[in-house]
């Protein structure tokens, strides 16, 4: 930015306020890591850091897709089931064959896209509440997956080495998984910020009535959001197979709530209109780090969910409190102007 005018200063202030959420999560992460490292110095080893990023990648990928949906004032609860289905399906697809990795990825994402289309059409064209639709598809997809799997599982021995390498290998010391996630995150984040159609997702969530009056193609955008969420869940499914090799039917069972937590903790307003994919990804990283920290500190892993839940409540309470304060301040300021 070369132009440093007075209003650029104002802009930077607004940007800073909007970024405050991302910054505070980052701060929380740093404090968490610092304290843990002080207690156990091996926490920050190369392997330890690598593990955290590997573990956070899939969650962050899902959080990016979920952000697109949540920003339009909707929700996608079916992502956990889609990951499970795609992980198993692509396992079946590759078992015993030497498939091209790209083909596997495309097939996985197509399955995800199909699930996204079903969600999106029901929500946008038939105007069924998103919570109900995606809760329904959560169970339907899970049921299909269980029926198909019938107690079988995919074993790492059946998965081609090239695919397993995608899940565990690295380039220049950076594992593929976080690399893929970062590329996707930056692409989606840039699209949402820089493109007119990207801004429309925020407009829809911010004020649906005004969006309609502004002539925004609401149904198309909501459908797009669900398809993107589905495609990314499909991608996450293939990566799940690549990372773990062994896949049972209920892979990623219950992950939908983890994803929603990550998104909300990351500052995406659950009522839409506000938040970024970067925040959501940071939220995913924070939740994953907490998981690792608990292991290092030898806290019973049962606590992990409780802590994630507490963090979610904290995030929502802070948001609400801030909103009330801002409203109150504005109300009083307007009153003084009026008087």
């Amino acid at each position: 930015m070369a132009a440093l005018t007075a209003d650029a200063g104002g802009r930077r202030f607004v940007d800073m306020v909007l970024r405050a959420r991302e910054l505070s999560i980052l701060a929380a992460l740093i404090v968490l890591v610092a304290v843990t490292t002080a207690v156990n110095s091996s926490f920050l080893s190369t392997q330890g850091v690598k593990d955290i990023f590997l573990n956070a990648s899939i969650l962050a990928l899902l959080a990016v897709g979920q952000t697109m949906v949540v920003v339009t004032r909707n929700i996608d609860l079916s992502v956990g089931s889609v990951v499970g289905l795609v992980a198993f399906a692509s396992g079946k697809f590759v078992a015993g064959h030497d498939r091209n990795i790209l083909l596997v990825l495309v097939v996985g994402m197509l399955i995800g896209a199909a699930c996204g289309v079903v969600n999106g059409v029901l929500v946008s064209f038939f105007k069924v509440p998103a919570l109900v639709v995606t809760l329904g598809t959560l169970y339907v997809i899970q049921g299909l997956d269980y029926y198909w799997a019938h107690g079988q599982q995919i074993n790492a021995a059946d998965v081609p080495a090239s695919l397993l390498d995608l899940g565990n290998g690295s380039v220049l010391g950076i594992p593929y998984l976080p690399l893929i996630t970062v590329v996707v995150m930056v692409a989606v984040g840039y699209y949402l910020r820089a493109y007119p159609s990207g801004r429309e997702f925020y407009a829809i969530g911010s004020n649906p009535d005004a969006a309609r009056l502004a002539g925004i193609a609401i149904r198309k955008r909501i459908l797009t959001a669900y398809v993107v969420s589905g495609v990314l869940a499909g991608l996450a499914g293939v990566l799940w197979l690549a990372r773990f090799g062994t896949v049972v039917a209920d892979a990623a069972h219950g992950w939908e709530l983890k994803v929603v937590s990550a998104v909300v903790v990351g500052g995406v307003a659950i009522v839409g209109g506000l938040g970024s994919v970067y925040g959501a990804a940071l939220g995913a990283l924070l939740l994953t780090t907490i998981g690792s920290v608990l292991v290092v500190l030898k806290v019973n892993s049962f606590w992990q969910d409780a802590i994630a839940g507490a963090l979610l409540l904290l995030a929502i309470s802070v948001d609400r409190l801030l909103a009330l304060r801002v409203n109150r301040a504005l109300r009083k300021r307007n009153a003084r102007h009026g008087a």
Binding site: P196, G205, N207, A210, A214, G273, L274
Partner: peptide, 15 residues
């Protein structure tokens, strides 16, 4: 009929 979360400029030029 404005979008509260978007900037004034974006509100004016939405679409």
């Amino acid at each position: 009929t404005l979008f509260p979360d978007l900037s004034v400029a974006e509100n004016i030029f939405m679409g």
